[in-house]
Design a protein around this nucleic acid. Structure first.
Lengths: 254, 254
DNA sequence: ATAAATTCTTGAACGTGTTCAATATTTGTG
DNA sequence: CACAAATATTGAACACGTTCAAGAATTTAT
């Protein structure tokens, strides 16, 4: 029985089996969908015992997590040339979003499973969970590079700069959620959406620096920073002491 | 065997059984949680056969859907006095959001299951699905009342007015997602978040009418309207003909 | 080279969501 | 009221995710 990962030496037997199970699973998920692929299918095709799959992967859903990790690493690699080449914030963000879509496209049939745990506070797979913090940080780090390495005509205030990676991460999650539902040829709708929203996001960043709206933005960013600390597993400060509601934005009552 | 819904006459046998199963399920979900409650538990406690539960509810998850429907109806009832009393947009929205939180509070332990299908385009339970359109419309109708019945100092442009109910619906979904993760006493964190974000939302509405940002807002709203038609199961217009990217917001490059 | 320790593999069994043919009960009609 | 049609109920069985004790294989230590 030849090893399917013969181009990657130094794997012991267990690591080889783990990779085989994962490759087999992803292949079957791609072909048939997540629900239609059973663990028995995977074990059979990989020529291992059913229980063996659970030695390496805690659950069927953990197999999906592995796919996400993989695309995360691939995005890191793919983002280097983009960020080296592009200068404007818009082009950088657009490049990254397009790369993201390309990398996840083969998994369209089952990528939605990623969202299954979003409503389960106890699941380690939950994108908002502490356990997912590492992965989330990798993602936001890329967005920090998008912004930090851009040649700008405006100065982004420090408080906005601090929150942008996370805001862009949420933006990305929204786009992925849309993409999951997108059945148009070549995901044309999602690409169109990105074209427009990247432009809008860039302009909103400019608007957020305007003096007229600055107090409200400051306040909003403070709020976001506070609640982000929940997400990043930091101690939560007392909200009411941190944010004063009746600041200089009181003339904006609708 | 006395009927548990004796105060609601005119139910035939089937309807009585359906109600009994649902009540039993929701009770057990509340006590033990969704995952820990099996369909066998429900059938046994309701004194019906296991297979009978499937005669009335297509799946375990459909039981959750019924809870959502119920809170939707309860919110309709609860929103009347609030909307009759409050005049300002802020107070109205705050009232509705608070009412929403109160109504769903008993179900905190299992409300997250609602989000499980958000990533499954094929699931009829998906909040974004065509099948959920009716429910969604009820929800957005409430938000339309929030805005439409408010006494305002500004004139909300028609395009913004048309999109606000859906935007507020998405806002609400975000708040509920946060609430699901909120373990603070009496959901104080979520209440604090609402206090602040309702105020911010109100002010953002004002800002959206400013001439300086108006072109960008118009464009964004057109984009939203286009993609909302996907959601509302309407024919999708050709995006590129509907929205001109290089309009009067071109001075906003960051 | 051999023994000990560790890791990997296995398949029977379990729990739980779901199905469905057979039967019982209810409803509607003359 | 009787009977036919429609609806409701049932429990055995199935499918599939998961578990785990026993045994095999691999790795490590001497």
């Amino acid at each position: 029985m030849s090893s399917p990962k013969s181009e990657t030496p130094k794997l012991n037997k267990g690591q080889q089996t783990k990779a085989l199970i994962l490759e087999t699973a992803l292949e079957l998920f791609r072909e048939r969908g997540y629900e239609q692929t059973t663990m028995r299918d995977i074990a059979e095709k990989a020529n291992v015992a059913l229980g063996n799959t659970y030695y390496y992967f805690r659950s069927k859903e953990h197999l999906i997590q592995a796919f996400y990790h993989r695309t995360q690493e691939e995005l890191l690699a793919a983002s280097e040339p983009i960020l080296a080449k592009e200068r404007s914030l818009k082009a950088r963000l657009l490049g990254i979003m397009r790369a993201r879509l390309e990398l996840i496209e083969p998994y369209h049939q089952f990528a939605g499973v990623l969202f299954r745990t979003a409503g389960d506070p106890k699941s380690p797979l939950n994108p908002f969970s502490v356990e997912s913090l590492e992965t989330r940080k990798q993602s936001t780090a890329t967005f920090e590079q998008v912004v930090g390495g851009a040649r700008l005509r405006i100065a982004i205030p420090a408080d906005l700069y601090a929150e942008l990676p996370n805001l862009l991460w949420i933006y990305q999650m929204g786009i992925i959620l849309f993409w999951i539902h997108d059945t148009s040829p070549n995901r044309i709708r999602t690409h169109q959406l990105i074209e427009h929203t990247v432009d809008i996001v860039a302009k909103l960043i400019t608007i957020a620096t305007f003096p007229l709206v600055r107090p409200l933005i400051k306040r909003t960013l403070r709020l976001l920073a506070t609640f982000r600390q929940d997400l990043d597993n930091l101690p939560a400060p007392n909200l009411d002491e941190e944010i004063d509601k009746d600041e200089l934005d009181s003339g904006l009552e609708p």
